[in-house]
């Protein structure tokens, strides 16, 4: 794929109007987000900062989820992960003068996000990574760049309509996830699975009564099975997704916040949302207010 260096056009979530023009057998159309890759980006950063190093080397490694449709998902046949999180990654990389195809994507799962940052396995984690005080003890988390909340996915004929209805019911999510802990606190029987897709299968086969996780993910599945599944109850938790970085490089926080703020102002954030999570039919929300970076 040959692109003009200054203007990279990225295909996201199997949407490649412009890729089709390049001779790529395109997917089923849709939106494409365009990111301005900064020229001479290295000049913008002070010597000795992590950003300067990335810009000079032209390389960055970003950890994302590979198994959350809409947020971070990579099918077996895909070259690149798709979803809102990778889009945010592309926006951040572009500000360093790094084109999307030069980003190294690495799958992070809930268990390895902190170790990966601490050991320098990845430079950034953008993986539905809720900001918590405990996590901020060991890694840096800038943001939030997106706020979502936990909801329930049930069969269309289910009589679960409110959060009270889950008491004593079997509700699945990913093993060890915060969502599962939350629903346990509501009196449900938690059923952990390895992946969201296995969990959805359990709901479809009637083996569990409901699935729970962040609403955005549930909407994606409901859209896949509109006749069988529906999302119910108002969000009953607040998950503030942040960008994880190593505590050894505190200067990254302000850069992340500034870059995302700029994307919010110039419409890149909206475009990224519409191309990914927005596909399930939800309105594009207002971007959340971001936390102050800790004093260096």
């Amino acid at each position: 794929m040959r692109f003009i260096r200054t203007k990279a056009i990225i295909a996201t979530a199997g949407l490649a109007l412009s890729l089709a023009a390049c001779g790529d057998a395109g997917d089923d159309g849709g939106n494409a987000t365009e990111v301005d890759v900064q020229e001479n980006a290295a000049d913008a950063f002070d010597d000795g900062t992590a950003m300067k190093d990335f810009a000079d080397s032209g390389k960055i490694t970003i950890g994302v989820k590979f198994d959350q449709p809409g947020i971070g998902f990579k099918g077996a046949a895909d070259d690149m992960p798709k979803g809102f999180d990778p889009e945010i990654g592309k926006i951040l990389a572009a500000s360093l003068g790094i084109a999307p195809e030069d980003i190294t994507w690495k799958e992070t799962i809930s268990d390895n996000r902190e170790p990966f940052l601490q050991e320098g396995e990845v430079d950034l984690v953008i993986a539905s990574y809720s900001i918590t005080d405990e996590r901020r003890q060991v890694v840096g988390q800038a943001g939030p760049y997106y706020v979502t909340g936990q909801q329930l996915l049930v069969g269309t004929d289910s009589d679960i309509a409110s959060l009270d209805d889950v008491k004593g019911k079997e509700v699945c999510s990913v093993t060890g996830s915060t969502s599962l802990e939350n629903i346990k606190a509501e009196g449900a029987k938690p059923r952990g699975f390895d992946t969201y897709s296995e969990c959805v299968d359990q709901v479809l086969s009637g083996t569990v009564d409901a699935m729970t996780t962040d609403g955005a993910i549930l909407l994606g599945y409901a859209a896949e099975h509109p006749d069988d599944l529906k999302v119910v109850v108002d969000p009953f938790s607040e998950e503030r997704y942040g960008v994880g970085y190593s505590k050894d490089k505190p200067e990254m926080c302000q850069w992340i916040v500034d870059t995302i703020k700029k994307a919010e102002d110039d419409g890149d954030w909206d475009a990224a949302f519409e191309a990914t999570l927005g596909q399930s039919g939800v309105d594009t929300p207002e971007p959340p207010a971001m936390d102050e970076c800790p004093a260096a």
């Binding site: 268990d111 405990e134 003890q137 093993t175 996830s177 802990e181 059923r191 952990g192 699975f193």
Partner: peptide, 24 residues
């Protein structure tokens, strides 16, 4: 069984590490 709906030792360990990243 941790990955198949059983909140046995490994599943619980995952939940605890997820919530307490500082005490891994």
């Amino acid at each position: 069984a941790a990955a198949f709906g059983m909140a046995e030792a490994v599943a619980t360990m995952k939940a605890l590490t997820n919530n307490n990243a500082d005490q891994r």
